[in-house]
Each structure stands twice: as structure tokens, then as C-alpha cells.
């Protein structure tokens, strides 16, 4: 949760730089609540606003949620059905990664999921508001290395999943595919390409012996 503070402040700062009021930044964080796509959207934010392209790019960036919710759905069978769909709104990259790691040891119950995920939501949108309100007085985020905080968070979570050389192979495959796709295509297709190629490599390296 501590990590959401700098990232939320950073995103708010960048949004303010593109003309977002503090309230506009906060409400986007309330309703969209998907950090990576919000960073990409602010990066693409020009007037007149390309609403359709923004929506499609958000879809592409967040297509990973299809894979994520498919994966987590195996671990939340103890949660009442109606609540599962509500819970999906507050599952983010970070809370989901934590939940997946916990699921390695124990099945996930409703209390754990709400307790670990729900507080992140107000943290995220309140920090977006504060970031947009005061952040641009701080100067360029690069001065403090704040622009690298998001990468540091993801790297830490990725390494938390490390289970040996096969994990390394998935990381390299995903990174290589993402670099190639990013060079070849504009937009956010590199996320889906890297994700899919890494998953394919994991499937190919799988052997039933140690499953």
C-alpha cells in the first residue's frame, strides 16, 4: 500500500501537466483504477481528445486483466459468486500479484481479498488528487527518479515469483517480444505480445514430471 502513495502522486503530477484538474485526476483514478493504462493515457492526452483511441489503447493495455482474472478465478472459489464480480473491480496488478503469491500457500477467502485490496483504491485516488493539486509545484518527476518507481515496484513483484531458470526464460521471452513489438507497432500491443509469448514459453517448458 505504501507503494501506491508515490505512484499515485506521480500519476497525479503527470495528469496535472496535461491539464487535468485535481478532481478530474481523482475521478479517473476512482472509475478506471488501472495505473499502467492511466500512465499510458496521460502520455497520449492531446487536444482535441482522441476518445476512441484512448479507449482502445486502454483495452489493449488492460487485456492482461483477462489473463489475470482467469488465473485468480481458480483461487477464489470460496468467495460467494456475486461478490467475485465486485471483487474484480478492486483487483489491481499489485493486489493480484500478492493474492497469487498467497494462493501458493492457502486458498483465498473473501476477508483476505477485501482487506488486502480495498484500502488500495482510496489510497490510489486520493494520492491522484493530491499529486495533481500540489505535484506540479515539485518540478520534473525525473529529478527525484519518481518516474522509475513504477518499474521498481513491478521488478520487485516479478522477482517475488522467481522459481528458477524457467522463470528467467519467461522474463527474457516476454521482454524480447515486447521490445520487438514496441519497435514494430505503435500503441500498447507490446504488452499483450510480451505477455502471450512469455506464457507460451512457460507452457513449452512445462514438464509433467515436476508438475
Amino acid at each position: 500500500m505504501v507503494a501506491y502513495v508515490p505512484i499515485g502522486l506521480l500519476w497525479g503530477t503527470l495528469a496535472a501537466g496535461k491539464g487535468f484538474s485535481a478532481l478530474a485526476a481523482m475521478l479517473m483514478s476512482v472509475f478506471v483504477y488501472a495505473g499502467a493504462s492511466q500512465f499510458v493515457a496521460v502520455d497520449m492526452w492531446v487536444q482535441p481528445l482522441p476518445v476512441l483511441v484512448l479507449t482502445l489503447t486502454t483495452l489493449v493495455v488492460n487485456l492482461r486483466h483477462v489473463l489475470m482474472s482467469a488465473s485468480i478465478s481458480r483461487h477464489i472459489t470460496a468467495v460467494p459468486k456475486g461478490w467475485r464480480y465486485a471483487l474484480m473491480f478492486i483487483l489491481t496488478d499489485e493486489s493480484w500479484a500478492m493474492a497469487e503469491r498467497r494462493a501458493l500457500r492457502a486458498p483465498l477467502d473473501f476477508g483476505y481479498l477485501v482487506g488486502s485490496s480495498l484500502p488500495l483504491w482510496p489510497t490510489w485516488f486520493l494520492c491522484s488528487f493530491i499529486g495533481a493539486a500540489v505535484g506540479n509545484k515539485l518540478g520534473a518527476p525525473e529529478t527525484y527518479g519518481l518516474d522509475f518507481a513504477f518499474s521498481a515496484i513491478f521488478l520487485t513483484i516479478i522477482m517475488g515469483f522467481w522459481k528458477g531458470p524457467r522463470t528467467g526464460a519467461v522474463i527474457i521471452a516476454s521482454g524480447a517480444a515486447a521490445v520487438g513489438t514496441k519497435l514494430a507497432l505503435s500503441g500498447a500491443w507490446y504488452i499483450m505480445a510480451g505477455g502471450v509469448v512469455g506464457v507460451i514459453v512457460a507452457a513449452l517448458l512445462h514438464s509433467e514430471v515436476d508438475a
Binding site: A36, S71, D93, E100, S151, I158, V170, S174, V201, A203
Partner: peptide
Amino acid sequence: ALDAVPVSVMMAVIT
């Protein structure tokens, strides 16, 4: 394959 989704997708995002 599904277990590899977190690592694979997060790596692609930050690449």
C-alpha cells in the same frame, strides 16, 4: 501457462 501470466505480463509492461 496461467501461472506464468503475472511474470510475463508485468515484464512486458515495464519493458
